[in-house]
């Protein structure tokens, strides 16, 4: 069953995936979210990563920066669509207090039975709004890799804006931490375009199963196993 999820994710990545360079300077994600980059990043795009946007420095099996630019009330966070599961999906609500938003991220990151330990959660200004920051440790179930991560977020006009970074505790987290912190500190949310602005700018939640950090990562390691080659052995 897990394999199915994984395979769907792999297909998506394989068939339609692409990587785009995110240039130094001002970058806009979605309609209302922007940030300043001191150096370039790689934006890995494939259907299924929505509602987040995935950036990486070392590759998607190593480090992931996930950007949420305006999650709407009632929107599902990385739907868990494995056909046979009856699991409850994780849904964002505009009136969610900070602790519930963080527990929402937590649920997504432990969906594969990875162990997640919250190290810190506190208020922090983010993108010019009153927001929050959280730090965590995670042991990825798929390969036992120990990861460290942190996230920043804020709710503006009922929409969630957030950044979550996760990377191996060895070498990679310390290597890129400052870079990501700088991005977080430069983030800005612009006001909604007029009160009567259309709400449904983002596409509806994509019906492809994908996890946040990690849930999808096994996808690639498993890609190989799930892969098909026409000739039998």
């Amino acid at each position: 069953m897990k394999y199915l999820i994984v395979m769907v994710a792999v297909v998506v990545l394989a068939g339609c995936g692409s990587v785009r360079k995110v240039e130094t300077g001002t970058n806009k994600v979605g309609e209302r979210f922007s940030m300043q980059l001191e150096g370039p990043w790689n934006h890995v795009d494939f259907p299924g990563i929505k509602p987040g946007q995935l950036w990486t420095m070392e590759g998607i099996t190593v480090d992931e920066l996930i950007i949420y630019a305006g999650i709407k009330d009632g929107q599902v966070m990385h739907p868990d669509n494995a056909a046979q599961t009856k699991k409850q999906n994780v849904v964002f609500r505009r009136d969610m207090p900070t602790e519930k938003i963080v527990s929402m991220f937590e649920s997504v990151m432990t969906r594969d039975d990875s162990v997640f330990k919250l190290l810190r959660i506190e208020p922090s200004s983010f993108a010019g709004r009153k927001g929050f920051l959280f730090e965590f440790e995670r042991i990825r179930r798929n390969d036992n890799l120990r990861q460290l991560g942190f996230g920043y977020g804020a709710v503006d006009d009922g929409e969630l804006f957030a950044l979550v970074y996760v990377a191996p505790a060895l070498t990679f987290f310390p290597r890129h931490q400052a870079r990501v912190e700088a991005i977080a500190h430069s983030a800005l949310i612009s006001p909604p375009v007029g009160a009567a602005a259309p709400v449904a700018i983002l596409p509806p939640p994509v019906r492809v199963s994908i996890g946040m950090p990690g849930q999808r990562l096994p996808a690639v390691s498993t890609a190989a196993r799930a892969v098909a080659i026409p000739e039998p052995k």
Binding site: T98, E99, L118, L119, R120, I121, E122, P123, F132
Partner: peptide
């Protein structure tokens, strides 16, 4: 507690 900062706020 990890969330002491949040609760204090």
């Amino acid at each position: 507690a990890p969330d002491a900062g949040l609760i204090r706020s």
